[in-house]
Design a protein around this nucleic acid. Structure first.
Length: 494
DNA sequence: TCCGCTTACACGTTTGAAGGGA
DNA sequence: ATCCCTTCAAACGTGTAAGCGG
């Protein structure tokens, strides 16, 4: 386990910048902390460019998302959600020279779904007593999926986003304050078949279900292995055969054992030292094109925001704002939207009054490389529950896809734990008090998306990774909330 | 022809029912 | 009757390879 502080240190592309709240700046809003389990495993994958298989019937993630929560009010109820956010507006292809290369604009985003943790809602004490796993979460490329799996496009990059919402049930989510967290090392490329053989090997070596494909296995089907696309791959694989000690385990059990070690290490603060590492080939690429990249994205790119659950009424006004007319009181907000200046000063994360809205507005090109969605986010002070006040609204133009919360409820949840309200639509969509038409929101998916953002730079540099500019910011304590380029609840129509 | 996607397959893990014993 | 443990089979989760289709 690695603390958020550790992440900040580990993933910052530049020395961590002190935040307004100090070294523990991530302890915001009730001091809620979220940490990712198995950070080293994630990092190992990330260094090689994590790939996640997506299939029609749905495929689990590996590594799967597992988090720890702290700082919750033990007797208060919370809902834990996760969704997948596009990293950029590109579609990629795997080149024979073992690199991901931009292959064009991203396809229009499929229906965004939010996966609700099966335990939701549960008391804070429950969330904190043990790590919470999203093992059952499945990814699919079937846009007509009826199982509630998260729909992604193949050859597109995504990263999971975790949301913790204080709410007694799904009905009260609308009025609740939520915090959002992301972990840089969890970004991945959605694929229908593995492209990078290194990733394949990592999966095989660490996923117990793939034990049959391990070298020491007796599986005959495993061989002959697929002839390498490129002859040079072989030698590389041999390098990969000698991964860091922590990952040369031959069994998952071994890995589990090490996990305790890692945890202890992290808790002892030992994991907080890695800096300026090239965690992924993507990051490597980005270094070349880093010119436009923010330098400081400091705090680990771990992003943590707190916002009011979106209310259409609040965002509507901004739909009509022309791009560039953002009332954002801070230059940072503007910078985050300009391609060239899509960098935010290291101090920016300290400015809690930035409000960037989802870049779903077709007219608003979004920085496609630097603005890495992993932002460290300083969350604002607690916001009283209730209708979002004007100040909580993003300052930048935002075409927030108001609509219905499209939550992917696990069967047991959808039927037992979170009975859908009267307004429930397919895909567990939930009408909110504001009652925007779900159909309308659904239609928005065909609307402006990343695909409509023309690449702002030649497709040679891969999107920024660590150290890239943060895009998400959520502040609302007396200020505006900066929204991620991707809405929290795509269908929300609270 | 290329490249991405789908499908069948073998293998391993997980899960839960069934049975037996204390 | 209840609990615990073991066994076993089905379901499920994997990556591979072949074939399909745009």
């Amino acid at each position: 386990m690695q603390s958020i502080r550790d992440l900040k240190t580990n993933f910052s592309g530049a020395p961590a910048v002190p935040m307004a709240t100090g070294p523990d700046g991530y302890l915001q809003q009730g001091s809620i902390r979220m940490t990712l389990e198995d950070p080293d495993l994630w990092k190992t994958f990330h260094e090689n460019g994590t790939e996640m298989i997506i299939t029609k019937p749905g495929r689990r993630m590996f590594p799967h998302c597992k988090i720890n929560l702290a700082g919750l009010i033990p007797c208060a109820k919370y809902i834990l959600l996760v969704d997948m956010v596009p990293e950029d507006g590109f579609r990629y292809k795997w080149k024979v020279d073992d690199k991901w290369e931009v292959a064009g604009k991203a396809e229009p985003q499929p229906p965004c779904r939010t996966y609700l943790h099966p335990d939701s809602p549960a008391l804070g004490s429950h969330w904190m007593k043990q790590s919470m796993s999203f093992l059952k979460l499945k990814l699919t490329n079937n846009t007509l999926d009826q199982h509630g799996h998260i729909i992604l496009h193949s050859m597109h990059r995504y990263h999971p986003r975790f949301h913790i919402i204080q709410a007694d049930d799904m009905f009260s989510v609308r009025w609740s304050v939520f915090q959002t967290f992301t972990f840089p090392e969890t970004s991945f490329m959605a694929v229908t078949a593995y492209q990078n053989t290194k990733i394949t090997k990592l999966k095989i070596n660490h996923n117990p279900f793939a034990k049959g494909f391990r070298d020491e296995g007796t599986n005959s089907k495993r061989r002959p292995s697929k002839p390498p696309v490129c002859p040079e791959k072989k030698p590389r694989l041999s390098d990969e055969d000698s991964p860091p000690a922590d990952f040369s385990r031959s069994s998952y059990e071994g890995y589990e054992a090490d996990e305790d070690l890692l945890r202890g290490k992290a808790e002892a603060g030992g994991a907080a030292v890695v800096k300026e590492e090239r965690y992924s080939p993507w990051a490597t690429e980005r270094e070349g094109g880093r010119t436009g990249s923010p330098v400081g994205n400091a705090p680990g790119d771990m992003y943590n925001t707190e916002q009011l659950v979106p209310a259409p009424a609040s965002y509507l006004p901004y739909r009509f704002h022309g791009y560039g007319k953002s009332p954002s009181p801070t230059p940072s907000a503007a910078s985050s939207h300009s391609s060239a200046s899509a960098r935010r000063g290291p101090f920016e994360s300290r400015v809690p009054d930035v409000a960037t809205v989802p870049d779903h507005d077709a007219a608003k090109p979004r920085p496609l490389h630097h603005p890495h969605p992993h932002h460290h986010h300083e969350t604002g002070a607690s916001v009283p529950c209730g209708p979002p006040h004007p100040q909580a609204v993003g300052a930048a133009p935002q075409d927030y896809p108001g609509g219905v919360l499209n939550v992917s409820l696990p069967p047991q949840v959808s039927h037992a734990k979170a009975p859908p309200p009267a307004g429930v639509l397919g895909h567990h969509a939930v009408y909110g008090p504001y009652g925007a038409a779900a159909e309308q929101s659904l239609g928005q998916w065909g609307g402006p998306g990343h695909a409509q953002f023309p690449p702002l730079r030649p497709p040679h540099h891969l999107p920024a990774e660590y150290g890239s500019q943060a895009m998400h910011h959520g502040y609302h304590h007396g200020n505006v909330a900066e929204w991620s380029q991707y809405p929290l609840f795509s269908y929300s129509c609270w």
